[in-house]
Design a protein around this nucleic acid. Structure first.
Lengths: 261, 261
DNA sequence: AACTCAATGTCGCGC
DNA sequence: GCGCGACGTTGAGTT
């Protein structure tokens, strides 16, 4: 395992090492003065300046300046990198299809080049996601409200799968939408679509909600029409989201994806 | 302007150069075997492996593997980097507040370190955005439909600012929602909110739409109640989005942010 | 600081 | 391949 590192190489030396690195499937870091142009979903141009170009063996390309979390220009994984020397200058081109996109980096000076073998070590263990929130609710349904019974997760509907579907203490169907963080009005709209879809189902087919029913009061009897409720679970909601929740008669349950420390 | 580059430095050498680089406001690239842990909005852990750590003078930190456009772990700009040697090993910690977040990178081996002075050259000229689409429509309103007249951009409403507000050939108010690329159902929901808000305005206040009116048929006379229309401008729409457009009686105008080549 | 919306968003999953 | 929704989304602009 060897890291190759060149300090102020000539453009031809840089090209040589670049091609070797591509061949070996190395991660390449290239620092120098360059212009960058992009053509694809949009188009952009970047005047000459010092930047760091990262070329990954999976086809990703990243152009970073001294500021920002985001690369100033990039190419997603699956692209193909090529390098050449034109008029004595190193040029790196990364292209992909669907959609057609091209990133071109033209160097006037190459200050530093490193080629590094990298393998494995990408198995990230992330916790505190929406998945954790769902787990938490299935384990403790009373966090939603007393008497709440989850029946199904990812229950299909004409508006797409709902996060959690269940029944409240009075037997009303409940659609639960989970968000791991503070939400805006869009989440209320999403919940509304599920609720509407479910109300249509109920309207069309009577209360056919007990798919795996134990058959109680199943006939079109004197039971009141079940009221489909909507519950938004999120740590908090914006003011406008709260308005829309109130408009539609939905409830908000304040809950974090992981218990408070 | 000098790039400092160390090959297989000792942990103490690396620390020394890191501190110098922080002092000088350099961009730092650090490659080696390390573990990474993050605590903040969520939490994550990454087992030992070879990775590239990028430390920017603006406080951003990026941990990259050999795959993906996204860093496997990161810290946003504005964070503070600190480095130390503990038990003979280099450790880099990046922290920020609001929210409290900490990224810790513990190295077992440092294979390569570079410190690079980077300034300026971040002025990107990007075209093909939603802004361009708006400009295009204001210059050629007939692209929406014959007789369409834009009246206002970013017109405020109770549902937020609408992209373009105008009037059609029959004098009906038109809400135009712009999307620079193919859209799904969410965009229809957004348009619907604006249209609903505007219909409420009209309902409450009569047709007070001619703010800078030329006064034709202005009285509460026999003119038909103006019909608020919704138009979605996007290169294309998904099937589900098309359904929802049809449901609500909205129109779709197929248009690219920049003219076809 | 909070809220809202665009993005060359990226990414993963399901059909 | 497309459609759909989450993301430690990020980032910019406005209030």
């Amino acid at each position: 395992m060897t890291v190759t590192s060149l300090h102020d190489p000539s453009h031809r030396e840089a090209l040589w090492e670049l091609e070797n690195a591509f061949e070996r499937g190395n991660l390449v870091s290239l620092f120098g003065r360059c212009t960058v142009s992009y053509e694809g979903r949009a188009a952009s141009d970047l005047a000459a300046g010092d930047r760091l170009l990262l070329l990954k063996p999976d086809g990703a390309a990243l152009v970073h300046t001294d500021e920002g979390r985001q690369p100033v220009n990039w190419q997603p994984p699956g692209s193909e990198h090529r390098a050449a020397v034109r008029e004595g200058r190193l040029r790196v081109v990364s292209t992909r299809t669907t959609p057609d996109e091209t990133l071109t980096v033209r160097f006037s000076d190459v200050h530093q080049l490193s080629a590094m073998p990298v393998t494995g070590g990408r198995d990230l263990d992330l916790h505190g996601s929406e998945e954790d929130l769902r787990t938490r609710i299935l384990e403790r349904p009373d966090l939603i409200e007393a008497g709440f019974e989850p029946r199904e997760t990812e229950r299909p509907s004409s508006a797409g799968p709902m996060d959690v579907f269940g029944v409240d203490a009075d037997g009303n169907p409940v659609v639960v939408e989970l968000k791991r963080r503070r939400v805006g009005p869009d989440a209320v709209g999403q919940l509304a679509r599920y609720v509407r879809a479910l109300r249509e189902e109920v309207g069309v087919d009577g209360n056919s909600l007990d798919a795996d029913a134990d058959g109680d009061a199943d006939g079109d009897g004197d039971a009141a029409e079940p009221e489909v409720r909507g519950v938004l679970v999120a740590p908090s909601v914006t003011d406008r989201a709260a308005e829309r929740l109130a408009d539609r008669g939905f409830d908000h349950v304040a809950l974090e994806p992981t218990p408070e420390e």
